[in-house]
Design a protein around this nucleic acid. Structure first.
Length: 289
DNA sequence: CGAGACCCCTGGCTGC
DNA sequence: TGCAGCCAGGGGTCTC
């Protein structure tokens, strides 16, 4: 579910709730994709919360004089913040609220994840990038190291389709199916073209458009397709601004030929749907054909 | 190195 | 209304 903009939006809300707080206790009711570490309570309870950051789709919550919590929301994960009620019923976890963290102001931070594709793990402070899940991640597209030269170096020898290459978290950390489709549409590049067939100019265009799309999505509060909501429980609005994702058969804004052109097309690549406009994003080179 | 299949798991929607 | 089948925003592992 959550791609970079959704994670960023959730993390903003979560950071506000965590700022200056201390963890009183943690409770794990069910394991996630990987078992939540047995020593979570031992290492986290009583610790004051430090900086909260994001790396691709991972949220990193550092604990002072303690480890760093690594949280990935998978497909269906979300964060539920439950402030201490003035009066009335006590906190009750939701059906799929598998982990709860009680803060010193009575707020509960819940990790809700019906499909349990997400995870909560611990990394050693100061060596987070050495963690097995983080060490092979590529550049985060909102960080300065991400630019045309970086992207070109990562793509110019890749024989995979550009769509698949951009989904590879080792190339760029944070993109998912929705935003790759939107980025390639904006850059007017066919998702089936081989990454190695793209010119420097085309890659530079992708490098320019990527942070633009992500920042716009963050500004809109992310994309809500099914049950995504931010840490306050509010849905995003960027799905209304999707130009191609989920719009098979609909006209693309750039296409004067609709309906004769058939509108937005959908193809399956590596098991994931790709949406594109065949006129704006032509297949092009012989190498790709 | 890359493609594709399979796996993790649940809920929502569609069509019969 | 019931139910089977398909689909989904992620990603790790294995084989070819």
């Amino acid at each position: 579910m959550p791609e970079l903009p959704e994670v960023e939006t959730i993390l903003n809300g979560l950071s506000a709730a965590l700022a200056g707080r201390r963890i009183i206790s943690t409770e794990v009711r069910r394991d996630l994709r990987w078992p939540v570490p047995d020593d979570l309570s031992i290492r986290a309870d009583g610790k004051k919360i430090g900086a909260t950051t994001r790396l691709g789709k991972y949220m990193l919550i550092s604990l002072m004089r303690g480890p760093t919590l690594l949280i990935h929301l998978g497909m269906s994960g979300r964060i539920r913040i439950t402030p201490k009620p003035e009066k009335g019923p006590a906190y009750r976890p939701l059906t799929h609220e598998h982990v709860s963290i009680l803060l010193d102001n009575g707020t509960y931070i819940g990790l809700v994840d019906p499909r349990r594709f997400g995870c909560l793990l611990l990394a050693d402070a100061g060596r987070e990038r050495d963690h097995v899940l983080l060490r092979s991640l590529g550049a985060d597209p909102l960080e300065p190291e991400f630019d045309a030269a970086y992207l070109y170096a990562r793509l110019n020898r890749k024989r995979a389709p550009i769509k698949t290459a951009l989904l590879d978290q080792r190339v760029i950390a944070g993109l998912g199916n929705i935003y790759v489709c939107e980025i390639l549409y904006r850059a007017a590049i066919n998702p089936q073209r081989l990454a190695s067939s793209l010119s420097m100019d085309e890659i530079a265009l992708i490098a320019r458009v990527t942070p633009e799309v992500l920042r716009e999505a963050i500004g809109a509060g992310g994309s809500t397709l099914r049950d995504y909501v931010d840490a306050q429980g509010k849905p995003g609005a960027f799905q209304d601004l999707h130009l191609v994702y989920g719009r098979e058969g609909e006209p693309c804004p750039e296409c004067p030929g609709y309906p004769a052109c058939g509108g937005i097309r959908r193809v399956v690549q590596s098991g994931r749907s790709s949406f594109f406009c065949p006129r704006r994003q032509p297949p092009l080179s012989l190498e790709d054909a």
